[in-house]
Amino acid sequence: MSFSTMLSSMGEGMLRSCAIFILTILFSMPLGMIVMFLRRSRFTIVREITKIYIAIMRGTPLMLQLLMWYFGPYYLFGMNIRGYRFTAILLGFSMNYAAYFAEIYRGGMETIPVGQYEAAEILGYNKVQTFFKIILPQVLKAILPSVTNEIITLVKDTSLAFTLAYNEMFSIAKQIAASQTSFMPFVIAGVFYFAANYLVAFIMERIEKAFDYYK
């Protein structure tokens, strides 16, 4: 197998990896915001349930969670799971990452001095305005480094989708490596992950710079 054939067969896998990555970011980041609000709810029961949810998401392997999301509906409710595979993968990744993002957001919220809320209240901002105009921009600045970390982890975690027989890039690399008795696919995979994460780091650095105008 020539180098270019190797690249092109892995190319499709790269697209699949990117699909998981982009869709997970798209779903989990706003979802994390909702989880964070539930986690900070003034109702104890909501807070406690959210805590348990976060504990499970963070305390069990993502691989196990993927299996649960996919096979759960069949084993628990006897549902037909044909064609549900990709949905389960997105569910698994998004729900897991939402938990992590929620905790990052929560940490960010706690860095905001209470005086900011009080100033907003005195000036007459309502709760929604206070959050989106005053608090959120400052939270975003505070959490950017942790978010970058989490996103980079996600790039590498996409390989777990193979647990549910989703042929992302790394599983194809393993298949080619096995059939060709070659190390080259792993080198390509490594370069792909590195390049993807370099891009992530580059973009995040740009965003951080954009927030640099104030302290």
Partner: peptide
């Protein structure tokens, strides 16, 4: 009680994964 609840919830995915084999 809280601890027991957490353990029980944790066991759900485990038991599902375990069903197969």
């Amino acid at each position: 009680k809280k601890l027991a609840l957490i353990m029980a919830l944790l066991l759900i995915p485990v038991s599902i994964a375990g069903c197969g084999s």
